[in-house]
Each structure stands twice: as structure tokens, then as C-alpha cells.
Simulated scan of single mutants.
Amino acid sequence: MKEFEKINILGINVTNLTSKELIRQIGFYVTHNQKQNILYANIHGINVASSLGWFREFFNRCAIVFCDGDGVRLGAKILGHHIYEKITYNRWIWDFASFCESEGISWYLVGSESIVIKNAVDNLKVKYPKLVIVGYRNGFFQNESEYEKLITDLNTTKPNILLLGMGMPHQENLLLKHGDRMTYNVALTGGAVFEYVSGEAKMTPSIFFHLKLEWFFRFLLEPKRLFKRYFIGNPLFFARIFMQKYFNKS
């Protein structure tokens, strides 16, 4: 098992690895029947972790926390580190699905609204007909009995991959509270992954991607929801980065 560099960014230990290394490492966990949680770190997530102690602690107990944003890479650079790659689900998920199809690695999907998750599953089956999807459901739980039903279903189907697309911190809270009772090899938190897989969310045009302005494209699509996250959250993140750099505070 390869040891990866961990870069401390405002108290979150971000794993420095490439998208191909991430896929290989997941394959290692599955092959060796390990149970691991893998999260992603973007500016929003690190900001949430600054105000929720349990969230920060959960991040740092996970096997891998990969970089999911140019802002995090820039923050690392300011602190004197180089993160190899930004790994975003809207692009990475297709390579991962192809790998899992070829290796016979099974998935269980949880997240989004019912119609979105169904369309995501349908699209995956069209693109990767041999990909094993043992179950799926929406990401909205009305009561404890629905959590219990999910736990029972996972313990029956025993998926290799549990992919959660419920948004922060709901998906992480589910793993924290119920993960020990669930059967899977690797749990991945994916945010809006099913919106992209289903086609509900628009892919970022290449020009925004190459200019490192994916965040601005998303803002243009949902200005009311994302204004606070980007125009308040982003400056706050970088202010705290400079505090960490010059005053060693995180």
C-alpha cells in the first residue's frame, strides 16, 4: 500500500495524489477487502470544517481526502506545497466507472432526488452496461426507519463501492452515524455527482475549466444559492490561509 503525502490546509489533511492513483488505491482497498472512507476537499468543505469540529475530525480519520478544487490547490501553493491534480467528479467519475466495470467492482448509489438518481443509473447502464449496480435510492431520509432500510439493503447486497451524493455535511454525517453498521469496501462522498451523471447539471465548458473558473460558471447557473459560498466563503478561506502561513494558525 502506497503512502501518500498529506498536506495540512486549515486543519484538514489533504492527500496529494493523482486521479489515476486514486483509482488504483480504491482498487487496492477492494482487492484486499478493506473498509475505507474517501472524502473530497474543496473550499466550501474546509470552511464547513472550520465551524464543525466533528466534521473536521471525521475528515482527518478518513483514508484519503482528495483535492476537488483549484482554490484548495492555490491555498496549498500559498502555504508552500504543490498538489498534483484537482480531481472533480464531473470528469473523474467516468474513468472510475470504466475501471469498476472492467474489474467487476459493484456500486450502490445514494443521493439526489429520486428522478435524478434513476436517470443517473440509467445513463451509467447505457455507457457501462457491465457495471454492477446493486442498488440505489434518493438522498432524502424522512425518519430512522429509512436509514435502517438502507443499512439492511447494504448488508444484503454487500457493494464494493458506496457512492453518496447528498451534499456536505449530510453525506459525511450519514457515514459517521451509520457507517460502522454498513457493509461496503469504499465509501465515496460525491456532492452533486449524480446531477452530472444524470445530465441534470451542465458540464463546465472547457474554457472555464482551463481558466480555473469552474466555480464562476456554477455561480452563473445558481447565483442565489452560491453567492454566499463563493463571494463570502472564498475570501474567508484565503484570509485564513494567510493567517496559517504567517501566524501558524489553522
Rank of each mutant, 00 (worst) to 15 (best):
N160Y: 06
V134S: 05
M203V: 07
E195L: 06
P205K: 11
I241A: 12
I64S: 02
L74R: 11
G233R: 11
G111C: 07
L226E: 03
W107S: 07
N160C: 07
E5M: 07
I133A: 01
K177I: 08
I207F: 10
L163D: 03
R229V: 08
S51I: 09
E146W: 08
G191R: 00
N123L: 11
M203S: 05
N90T: 03
L150F: 02
R229E: 07
I23V: 13
K86H: 12
M203R: 07
M203Y: 06
G190M: 00
N248G: 05
F55L: 11
L74E: 07
S98D: 08
I87C: 08
Y29N: 13
G190F: 01
K224Q: 09
N90I: 03
R56A: 11
V197D: 02
E3W: 00
N16W: 04
L163Q: 06
R73P: 00
C100R: 04
F247R: 10
N37K: 14
L226T: 03
E101Q: 15
T157W: 02
S250E: 11
Y89W: 13
N160R: 10
I93N: 01
V126H: 08
N160E: 10
L211W: 02
K212G: 04
G104I: 14
L221G: 07
F140A: 14
I23T: 05
L39H: 14
D153P: 14
R218I: 13
G179F: 06
N33L: 12
M203F: 07
G199V: 01
K86N: 13
A201Q: 09
G45H: 14
N90Q: 08
L150G: 10
I115S: 14
Y89T: 13
L22G: 09
